[in-house]
Nucleic acid binder design. Structure first.
Lengths: 336, 336
DNA sequence: TTGTAAGCGTTATCAC
DNA sequence: GTGATAACGCTTACAA
């Protein structure tokens, strides 16, 4: 069997290609009997309108790109689950790109997407400190962006985040209220927006609590759990903190490991609180006090914003949606 | 500024569109000076060859679809991380589709993909017991599939799995060797291939150990942690097992929760072993004995197979790659 | 209700 | 080295 296309299908039935299109697109100006004949043969021959030809003709793709650092982080995978669900309902398709936190990758992905392949982009950035010209170029192409979680303040685009500053502030105070005096902040490289904001919440809380912050209390971690293990171990040995606030759950998990090895008891010797979206937090030993982000909702809100823009090019949309995180207290910060 | 395209760019420089293509595709039959002029203006005008036009012309998309039940499962997100990495190296793009374990969704996704949108498909199925004609149709379109983890035996396509049967057998024996006599298997609906295979490993191990299996020891769970909570609680109360073997880590996590509430001590009253790819297993209370799957490798192997097929349409590729899982013993199955 | 024909933006083929 | 031209498969005016 030769490759089927609209012309062959049309010829087979003695109709024109235009009529085949009418059948497939659900237009009303077509005899219902003709339509049935067309769809029946199409099914038999396994004909489907070629996606690329349709797109070329229509100049839109019903596809969006999602750019994130990585997938195997429960926060991002939840966000994408939420986002995909909405996209699916709206008939959109999702291309996934991972930056692995490399600026160069982000740059090349975004540049690539200038080719009109997607109608819009949802992203969580990894290059806060870099120049963002490559993103502004998208505007001239009418490819809208929506940011979530790791945003760029200097790019004019809608954003969805949680109340990171406030949450960090509260987390730090939470530790202090439970008696901690030496509170370490384990965060990510300061060029991530969230790294910075969370650190600021932490520092401001210390200030308000009249705890003089020390340089060695603020620790930059990486994406590599093994490296983090060394970093955290070194920090705990050097600083001997009684409280640890971590910007990501992996850092908390790794801190648990370090404490296990150093025979430091949580929460008696050291209290830990962490940002986390994972259900396992409550199953750790001891259960981990978390600031839980509404990851699914963040994803679907970001998608919602993008679709609003795409479906309503002129109307303005909300500029910055802030979803609240929740502090869930568990045993890792229990006062004894 | 009007929308830029190859014709306008060519006109601007007094060259033909063909020459512009030569510049962009790195062909050698072009004056290097001309090439530079073209690329320079292209950059200035932010011109990129239209993706859909190229694809229509070339009849290939350098895009693959990945169909999975969900993303927020560490196994799948790791697999996709591995897969994306390889795809990226090979210049392929990834479309993500979630079935949420609904056969209808899988069906409609696969049918949709008949439109030539992707060059190939990598999938983990959710409809073992259904008819798989929709997948066979892809063959006539020359769209290859590679399965991973949740495979369909009756579809002729390369597969990547772990040694599920053997691992389940060993896990069950592991429990028995540590004194368990009433071993419950918490699995997923039997129409998943892995659900079935893992159950068979469990049942055969019981047989070999001369432990008569009882119907109520084999429990079907769902994708909903709350529902599972009720199911597991009911089972533990009814059966009062001394060993639990779970087919997925969420089931183990949930079992921990149930034990917490019922004041059942792990591993003294009940030992637990589970399939899991998550790094948190070792941080649970107590640390969970796992059968750890090489999730990243599974993803990249599946991608590798697909690319081999795509780049070498005629040559046969390996039919079934089996990667070994590892039993990592921790405290949840300690003999006391 | 249907058919005709133009055109979406590329790229491959051929001619020069 | 370069240009003209046809085709990829579809959709949409417009005509009938």
């Amino acid at each position: 069997m030769d490759k089927i296309n609209i012309k062959k299908l049309a010829k087979e039935l003695n109709v024109s290609p235009a009529t085949v299109t009418r059948a497939f697109r659900g237009y009303t100006d077509i005899n219902s009997e003709t339509k049935e004949r067309i769809l029946a043969l199409a099914k038999k021959l396994n004909y489907h309108p070629n996606y690329y030809a349709s797109n070329l003709r229509e100049m839109k793709s019903k596809t969006i790109a999602v750019i994130i650092p990585q997938l195997s982080d429960i926060f991002f995978s939840l966000a994408i689950d939420g986002l995909e669900k909405l996209a699916n309902q709206k008939g959109y398709h999702i291309l996934i790109y991972r930056t692995e936190n490399h600026y160069e990758k982000e740059l090349s992905i975004v540049n690539y997407l200038q080719n009109g392949r997607v109608d819009g982009i949802i992203m969580s950035g990894c290059a806060e400190t870099h120049d963002h010209d490559y993103l502004n170029k998208l505007e001239s192409r009418n490819i809208p962006i929506v940011f979530f979680d790791r945003i760029y303040e200097d790019v004019k685009a809608p954003k969805v985040t949680t109340n990171d500053y406030e949450s960090s502030f509260n987390a730090t105070r939470h530790l202090a209220e439970r008696g901690c005096k030496k509170i370490v902040y384990l965060g990510y490289k300061k060029n991530y927006s969230i790294g910075k904001v969370r650190m600021e919440g932490y520092l401001d809380a210390l200030k308000e609590l009249s705890i003089p912050a020390r340089k060695e209390w603020v620790v930059d971690c990486t994406d590599d759990n093994n490296k983090n293990y060394s970093i955290i171990k070194k920090t705990i040995k050097a600083v001997n903190p009684d409280g640890v606030f971590t910007a990501g759950e992996n850092l908390a998990f790794t801190s648990y490991k370090v404490c296990q090895e150093l025979q430091i008891s949580i929460p008696d010797d050291l209290k830990i609180i962490s940002f986390s979206s994972s259900e396992v937090a409550s199953l750790l030993n001891p259960p981990l006090t978390t600031i839980t982000q509404p990851a699914l909702e963040i994803g679907s809100k970001a998608a919602m914003l993008l679709f609003e823009i795409l479906e309503n090019k002129d109307l303005p949309v909300e500029d910055h949606i802030i979803l609240k995180s929740t502090l869930v207290q568990r045993e890792s910060t229990a006062a004894r």
